[in-house]
């Protein structure tokens, strides 16, 4: 790691922890909206792909380093009364999300992660995490976290972001 690596890492961590930003929304986008679109994704449903033994994953879901958060940019719901795949009490999960593909080091597979936002209460404020891997600008809504994805919910107010496994990613 050279000097610039250290600087960038430091600045990025400071940015993520203290500053302000998060690319607001998550989702599949205009062409991949809602649960009905899930079968269109390049994924194999996890339930059908498992062999013998129990699925494994490791890490701290309240840490920005957690494997599922590779493409996230927002407040981690795990720090807000929810978990990596559930919303805090009294909020509403957006049905429209954006996705990322993250590598699970515990089983060596890549998974498609759906970053559904939880909506209806003001910004959680805890555990701001910005990693942005695979993120694209807003012209690619299925891959952008810069939008407020509290769409299709009764409230437009963003609270926090989940990271839900929706399937094993196919190899190219």
């Amino acid at each position: 790691m050279n000097f610039f690596d250290k600087v960038f890492e430091q600045r990025s961590r400071q940015l993520a922890q203290r500053s302000s930003r998060r690319g607001l929304l998550k989702g599949l986008g205009a062409m991949l909206v809602g649960g009905a679109s899930i079968p269109l994704l390049p994924v194999a449903r996890a339930a059908g792909a498992e062999g013998a033994g129990r699925p494994v994953e490791e890490g701290d879901p309240s840490s920005c380093d957690y494997w599922r958060y590779c493409a996230i940019d927002g407040f981690l719901c795990d720090c807000c009364g929810g978990s990596a795949n559930t919303c805090p009490p009294g909020t509403e999960m957006s049905p429209v999300t954006w996705i990322g593909t993250c590598h699970n080091p515990a089983d060596g597979r890549n998974y498609v992660i759906s970053y559904n936002d939880c909506c209806g209460k003001s910004s959680c404020g805890a555990c701001l995490c910005m990693r942005d891997e695979g993120d694209r600008p807003v012209y690619r809504p299925d891959k952008t976290n810069d939008l407020n994805w509290c769409l299709g919910t009764s409230s437009v107010t963003y609270h926090c972001s989940t990271a839900i496994v929706v399937g094993v990613a196919f190899d190219d």
């Binding site: 050279n2 610039f4 690596d5 600087v7 960038f8 600045r11 990025s12 940015l15 930003r21 690319g23 590779c70 493409a71 940019d73 910005m130 990693r131 942005d132 891997e133 695979g134 993120d135 810069d146």
Partner: peptide, 15 residues
């Protein structure tokens, strides 16, 4: 601009 660009660094700002 920032040096040592990686996947995910495009929103992070620059030096």
């Amino acid at each position: 601009m920032h040096p040592d660009a990686t996947d995910g660094s495009h929103n992070g700002g620059g030096a």
